[in-house]
Design a protein around this nucleic acid. Structure first.
Length: 376
RNA sequence: GGUGGAAUGGCCGAGUGGUCAAUGGCAACAGACUGUAAAUCUGUCGACGGGAGUCUACCAUGGUUCAAAUCCAUGUUCCACCA
């Protein structure tokens, strides 16, 4: 279980196409993974997710711990059964909430003392807590409990996060090996280090030394420039083991995905397609569009003529803008549907190009046609 | 026909002598969103000007006052109740 096979590699960039085995099926990489924090990819049913070829989705340990909680999830027989999604699931450890809910907590090496963002009640997050919860969730891929550091952060702060992440990675692994089932669940390590080369390198070495079946790059896409992100990816591309899957956490802006793939990344996840979709911003092959814009009022063309999604096959921009302006639920659904399909299809296109030996051409074409900022 | 009440910026609606180009909300326009405290948040929103500022504005006309969206008179329209 969990063997990762590289099928093709781009000789120019180092981009890879692979297959990752999991108990719920094979994942073809590069892959984009929709985020389903609370046991639902917001606005999408499992049927629809299958329709857009979502191979694997995310769930979140912290949020699911609060609601519905361990009791109901274990009664349900795990997250797959609970939400009726039978393809692979990756669960985030709650480490990101150490970053995003930082105001509500006190962090020590021992644990994170946290106040629930829902009712203010106290809870303790730790590597052991996270592994236990992820065991109950029964995800195919579990993540180490890490500390994601804010940006910008001083070298000192970033180093603290690197040290703690290494300490917690070891504790995550030890607890996981003793209590979880490595045949049914893989535990991935997470590399931190902010934008500091020495810290990235050290973090990578420390995490890789613990020998995980896959490695994630955390602490990026938190506000740093694209150049800084790409620089860190270049550095890590030379350090991370080639025979293990690599997961760039939190990245979903289309150009970032393509650039990430070119730097040897296999897996991506991001709330951007779903959140921006609900907020009426869509991505196309040529850029980004705010669908509330008056310029679409009389436009009876599809969102993206190259897209094969349900939204693009059936609805005009004029109608979609109308849904956005009236705040109709269908608008949120159709925009999410499109954004997810588009993001997933970019990973698919890149994979096809790698296998066909024309990834550099694909990337060149993508970069030339996708305009940063708004479309055209 | 009588009595009482009301008329404010695209809409709703505060304001009842100067600090009012006028609170709020909606609509509109624009922007943000990267391991989800987000179907959320931010900005603009009378005209002209880069700005200081100038002009036109709170139903209409006239008046009181240094000063009126605010007070008075008349008119117009609308609402409620009574006949």
């Amino acid at each position: 279980m969990f063997e990762f096979r590289i099928i093709a590699e781009c000789p120019v960039t180092g981009a890879r196409a692979g297959e990752l085995n999991t108990p719920h099926g094979i994942i073809k990489t590069p892959v984009f993974m929709p985020v389903g924090t609370l046991a639902t990819v917001k606005a999408m049913s499992p049927l629809e997710l299958e329709e857009i070829n979502a191979q694997i989705i995310l769930g979140n340990t912290y949020h699911l711990f609060l609601r519905p909680g361990t009791e109901i999830l274990s009664e349900a027989g795990g997250l797959h059964e609970f939400m009726n999604w039978h393809r692979p699931i990756l669960t985030d450890s709650g480490g990101f909430q150490v970053f995003s809910l930082a105001r509500l907590q006190k962090i020590t090496d021992e644990h994170v003392l946290c106040r629930s963002h829902i009712d203010g009640s106290q809870l303790i997050m730790s590597p052991e807590w996270s592994m236990n919860m992820q065991g109950i969730l029964g995800s195919d891929i579990a993540m180490c409990f890490d500390q994601c550091c804010e940006y910008p952060a001083s070298h000192e702060k970033a180093e603290e996060a690197v040290n703690r992440t290494a300490l917690w990675a070891k504790r995550s692994r030890d607890y996981f090996m003793a209590h979880n089932d490595p045949e049914r669940q893989a535990l991935f390590g997470i590399i931190q280090g902010s934008v500091y080369d020495d810290l990235r390198k050290r973090s990578a070495e420390e995490i890789i030394a613990l020998d995980f079946p896959g490695y994630a790059i955390g602490g990026l896409s938190v506000g740093e420039s694209h150049e800084a992100m790409y620089h860190s990816l270049d550095l890590l591309n030379g350090i991370m083991p080639k025979n293990k899957p690599r997961y760039l956490m939190g990245v979903g802006y289309p150009p970032n995905i393509v650039e990430g793939i070119a730097r040897g990344v296999d897996m991506f996840d991001c709330v951007m397609p779903t959140r921006n979709g609900r907020n009426a911003t869509v991505f196309t092959h040529t850029g980004r569009l705010n669908m509330r814009g008056a310029s679409h009022a009389h436009d009876f063309s599809p969102l993206d003529s190259e897209c094969d999604c349900y939204t693009c096959r059936n609805f005009t921009r004029a109608y979609l803008r109308h849904l956005a302006m009236t705040g109709e639920i269908l608008g949120s659904r159709l925009f999410t549907w499109h954004n997810l399909r588009l993001t997933i299809s970019i990973a698919e296109e890149a994979r096809d190009a790698i296998i066909a030996g024309r990834f550099p051409e694909y990337m060149k074409h993508f970069t030339e046609t996708f305009h940063d900022g708004d479309e055209e």
